[in-house]
Computed example of a mutant assay.
Amino acid sequence: MTPSNSQHLSLPDAPQKILVADDELLVVQGIMGLLKTLGFEIIGPCKNGEEAIALVREDRPDMALLDIQMPIMDGMQAAQIIFHEYDIPVVMLTAYSDDTFLRNSIAAGVFGYLLKPASKEQLSAGLSVAWKRYLDHVDQRSKIVDLRQRLDDRKLIEQAKWIIVKRKSISEPEAMQLLQKQSRSSRKSIASVARAVIDSNDLL
């Protein structure tokens, strides 16, 4: 899914609701305690990836903190679904720091990882960095969407302009002036006017 610009503008500067998933009771209790002292609202805990996805669907956290090794569905599988279907960034809790793990994390849409056991300072910094990476990702994605829209609009305008040139036997600049005039008088974008020209043989 791709968020709109309005969705991006509504994103907070920092995550507030964090989903926690880890099948080790002592680990998850420690992580939740640290998150509470940092002021986060906690969703969970979950014992496996399937439970994490169900809670994401129900409560829509800002971010998910997942252990990589869990029964039924591991953290990496859950991360792929949580990010690609719900557009929620994931931070992985792991004992692994090798290159293979890092490559797989990036492919799954994971924006950060923390080596266990993580201290309060490491947890705070890791979540902050991951959230910034996520915001940068959304920014870049929005720019790509805007660029595609501008290119599509330009194609429409060019097509409409040449329709007018042929229909009225006028020059290209004159056709563009007609489009601009119609845009001003109708208070619509030039692209909207161009679409109407393409769809209607009578307009302009």
Rank of each mutant, 00 (worst) to 15 (best):
Q140D: 12
S119D: 03
S189T: 13
A196C: 08
A160P: 04
L115I: 15
Q122S: 11
I157Y: 01
A196H: 11
V138E: 10
M76G: 07
K120R: 13
K168H: 14
L65A: 03
V145N: 14
I18E: 01
D23Y: 05
I81F: 00
S119M: 02
P173V: 11
E85W: 01
D98C: 05
E58F: 06
Q16F: 04
A175C: 10
K188I: 01
L151E: 15
S192T: 13
I43W: 00
L114D: 04
R103D: 08
M70V: 07
H84Q: 14
W131V: 10
L147N: 14
D139V: 04
A160E: 06
Q177D: 13
Q159L: 12
Q77W: 07
T94P: 04
L25F: 09
S171H: 08
K181D: 09
L65P: 01
V193W: 03
L204Y: 15
E50D: 09
L93W: 07
L65D: 02
A14L: 09
R141N: 11
D152C: 03
L9V: 02
D98A: 05
K143A: 13
K161Y: 04
S4C: 06
N5A: 08
L11T: 00
L35P: 01
I170C: 12
R195Y: 14
R150N: 09
L9A: 08
L93I: 12
I198P: 00
Y86H: 15
A194E: 04
S128K: 15
Y134P: 00
K181S: 12
L123M: 13
A108G: 09
G112F: 02
V165R: 06
D202L: 12
V165T: 13
V27W: 00
V20G: 00
D146N: 10
L26V: 15
D139I: 04
Q180F: 07
A54L: 07
A108Y: 06
G112P: 05
A95P: 02
P61M: 02
D146F: 11
S124E: 14
L123Q: 01
A52W: 01
Q16N: 12
L114E: 04
I170M: 11
M70Y: 11
F101Q: 09
G44W: 00
P61W: 01
I72G: 08
M176W: 08
A64W: 02
D146Q: 14
V129K: 14
L19C: 02
C46H: 07
V91Q: 03
T100V: 14
L25S: 09
Q77P: 07
D152A: 11
I106Y: 15
G75S: 10
Y86M: 05
S105F: 00
V145Q: 15
P173I: 14
I164C: 06
S128N: 13
D98P: 05
S128F: 07
I81K: 05
Q159Y: 05
M92V: 14
